[in-house]
Design a protein around this nucleic acid. Structure first.
Lengths: 108, 108
DNA sequence: ATATAATATCAATTAAAATTGATATAATTA
DNA sequence: TAATTATATCAATTTTAATTGATATTATAT
């Protein structure tokens, strides 16, 4: 039988990483933006009317997502087009999920 | 072949639920508390020295966790003993994970 | 070169959450 | 009953994040 490796350590560094990610996604509008982008790229002018959010405020939230790497951008003429960065979302989601699973799956 | 049911809807209500959960767990000390409790119950007097957090502040964070149902308490003499509520953690984690998975697993 | 449209930035304000210090409550013991 | 211990609450302060309104930047078209 294969030895399980020790999943019980969750060193400070990893908790901090999880928290950083949580702080980026814990805002309803930012979650909605990610949700909007899940099927494909969208330019800002499509995003903000969808959210019923001011243009500049949408820019602000987009910046937070972008700074963390959850979305990427490219310019197309006047428009800036945002895409979801699945790799980064996947990595961080997996780390978060690993952590949460350890909370409820652990045997006494 | 079994028909997949439609997982692409993430109505507002569910997003709100996810956000509520995120807002509870997006704080480093609260995550650490959950981590401390994962192996079994602990009284407050064991928790706060572990976190190097003031007693009253620890109480404050415990209250937030408790109000959301992530932890439960029982009194034993002078001590109040906190336990993790695996059921609630599990349910909310699953909802969150479902949402995050849809972000990066979705095909264009 | 000027005007326009899309997006980003900035300073100021507001709102929400964390922290602190002091005090209250509740259970226990002397 | 009075003193002690563990925990919780409360008001005040500080910190952090969201929002607003105004303006700057950048790309394009006239």
């Amino acid at each position: 039988m294969k030895a399980k490796h020790n999943n019980n350590k969750m060193p400070g560094t990893e908790i901090s990483q999880v928290v950083e990610f949580l702080k980026v996604i814990d805002e309803e509008n930012r979650l909605k933006i990610l949700w909007l982008l899940r099927k494909g790229e969208k330019c800002v002018c499509e995003i903000w009317p969808c959210l019923e959010l001011a243009q500049n405020l949408t820019s602000h939230h987009l910046k937070i997502l972008r700074d963390f790497g959850l979305v990427t951008t490219r310019q197309e003429g006047l428009n800036v087009i945002y895409s979801i960065n699945k790799k980064v979302i996947k990595e961080n989601s997996k780390l978060l999920n690993k952590y949460l699973n350890l909370l409820w799956r652990v045997r006494k």
